[in-house]
Design a protein around this nucleic acid. Structure first.
Length: 505
RNA sequence: GGCCCAUUCGUCUAUCGGUUAGGACGCAAGAUUUUCAUUCUUGAAAGAGCAGUUCGAUUCUGCUAUGGGCUACCA
């Protein structure tokens, strides 16, 4: 029974796509691509009360930024549409009716308030085979009364009639067989007349079946309801084409307890959303805005709960498509660790061509008041190549290379104390003369001359060079001294030394 | 409370009965360097506990503990 691999990512547009959702989408995508299958994006907007404007657009944009391609969806189209559940009402109605006609579901009139009261009154109350006859539904009430209520326009729901004491088996590609007894399941609401929409469970099963989904790859939070889904496939007579279930472990908070939430990002100072997201009152940081490369995010998130079976960690999307397998998915939740995420970004940054990095640096320079048109691409590329090993994010480039663009205005006190001696100003003046005489100011030749001079005079190498650095950089840090002076040039170098002598004294 | 899932260094993980339990992030030390950083080398760091199966268990089983999820007319 080999059939085409078709998977779906089915978010509900109730907010920004969370990083855990990103991973679910990614695994679906990897599996689809690996098997030449289709990747479907289905919008599950069956809760009309939780709809958030802009969420759907956000999901689309985020997936596009990350390079997670969609084959079928609201925007992409396809032969199995519509791909938005709120546009599939007719389909659901038909299927609900089928279950009703076959006696596999029933109509219930209990209001939310009544149910709440019942739960408060009876400990561990569950709407199931043991209690349904004492509730207000089409099983416990005369048919004409039911009809009257419906004709009256009374709101009702359709509940799935679950037979008690059946052992339901769920076959999961990561966890193996999970067996649970149907008696612990309640008669789940499948449809609400109030908004003429199904609940997740019904819509999910109907759509997965109609869209010929072969593998349902989703978060572990769905594992408890998987038996219900199996029962639904059976009720519809679709057992033979039921998709293969795969439940992924959850992403946990970096510290403390529980699964990762959007609040964690705010608290700990790192993003949990791929891109910036604006709530009613809040702005939530995104990986993109924090300076993460999409490749790094994909790589990092991909390795949270899966590994290629060996020590490799830097994996491109194509690598992961090739290597992905459920056998190498872990069963337990993974803690989200920002340090490691930053390291991945660092790796991608240093392996990127310097020209590309220089392009990414331009907006940062502009932000810091540098007119980039004053600098050649060659200058920028060289600058970036000298300092890229020190950074994890593009924005860090400024801290590491601002002295290529602006002369220091202050001098690090600690370094002045250590390297600026009484005789330093005199030696710096000598240095100016030495530099003036250098024809070829590029790194190697300039270095030879200056080092030769220091040696000849018997000066202290460390003190002279660091005092020199202090005037040019403002503190004792940065790349090789003569790589810096080559880039900023003789004139600027000497000017900075003079200023330094004046200001430090 | 009930049900389900899980449990290897601080974190992400490798191991599919026999290993000095490996790698990575982070951390520490040393080397290198005219500075800071890089780089290199080294180090500290783990099988939750208790039974059982076995010649032999991190690996299989059970119990306990711990963590996580679900328990809605939310997904």
């Amino acid at each position: 029974m080999d059939r085409k691999v078709r998977v779906r990512f089915a978010p509900s547009p109730t907010g920004a796509l969370h990083i855990g959702g990103v991973r679910t989408a990614l695994y679906n995508y990897l599996f689809a691509r690996q098997n030449g299958g289709d990747m479907i994006l289905r919008i599950e907007d069956t809760d009309s009360t939780r709809f958030v404007p802009g969420a759907e657009e956000y999901i689309n944009e985020a997936l596009a930024w990350l390079g997670i391609g969609i084959d079928e969806g609201v925007r992409e189209g396809g032969n199995y549409g519509p791909y938005k559940q709120s546009e599939r009402r007719d389909i659901y109605r038909t299927h609900v009716k089928q279950l009703l006609d076959e006696g596999k579901a029933y109509i219930a009139f209990d209001t939310p308030e009544e149910l709440e009261a019942k739960r408060a009154e009876v400990q561990n109350f569950q709407y199931d085979a043991s209690t349904r006859m004492s509730m207000r539904n089409s099983l416990s009430m005369p048919a004409d009364e039911v009809k009257t209520l419906i004709d009256n326009g009374d709101k009702y729901v359709v509940r799935f009639k679950i037979e008690p004491d059946i052992n339901v088996e769920v076959d999961d590609l990561i966890r193996g067989k999970v067996v649970i007894n149907s008696s612990i399941l309640d008669d789940k609401v499948l449809y609400k007349s109030a908004d003429d929409l199904p609940t997740y469970h019904l819509a999910n099963i109907v759509d997965d079946h109609l869209m010929e989904v072969s593998h349902v790859i989703r978060g572990e939070e769905w594992l408890p309801s998987a038996p219900l889904h199996v029962l639904l496939y059976e009720a519809f007579g679709w057992k033979d084409t039921m998709p293969q279930f795969v439940h992924l472990p959850l992403l946990l908070k970096p510290t403390g307890k529980g699964k990762l939430s959007k609040r964690d990002g705010k608290k700990l100072g790192f993003p949990v959303f791929p891109m910036e997201w604006k709530d009613n009152e809040d702005v939530w940081a995104g990986f993109r805005e924090e300076g993460f490369l999409p490749e790094a995010v994909v790589n990092f998130v991909g390795l949270l709960g899966w590994n290629p079976g060996d020590d490799r960690e830097i994996l491109s999307m194509d690598d992961m498509i090739k290597e992905f397998s459920f056998e190498h998915c872990s069963k337990s939740g993974a803690r989200f660790n920002f340090e490691k995420a930053a390291w991945f970004n660092h790796e991608y940054l240093i392996n990127m061509p310097d020209e590309e990095l220089a392009e990414l640096y331009k907006p940062v320079l502009t932000e810091n008041g540098v007119d980039v048109t004053n600098y050649s691409d060659d200058f920028l590329t060289k600058t970036v190549s000298l300092v890229k090993g020190r950074i994890s994010f593009v924005k860090d480039l400024w801290e590491q290379s601002s002295f290529f663009f602006v002369a220091p205005e202050t001098y690090a006190e600690k370094d002045v104390k250590k390297r600026w001696k009484e005789d330093t100003p005199a030696i710096m003046n000598e240095l100016i003369d030495v530099l003036e005489g250098i024809e070829d100011f590029s790194s190697k030749p300039a270095e030879e001359v200056v080092i030769g001079w220091i040696t000849e005079k018997g000066y202290h190498m460390g003190n002279v060079m660091n005092a020199f650095r202090l005037t040019v950089v403002g503190e004792c840090k940065g790349p090789h001294m003569f790589d810096i002076t080559e880039l900023i040039g003789k004139e600027e170098t000497i000017k900075r030394i003079k200023t330094g002598i004046e200001k430090i004294g």
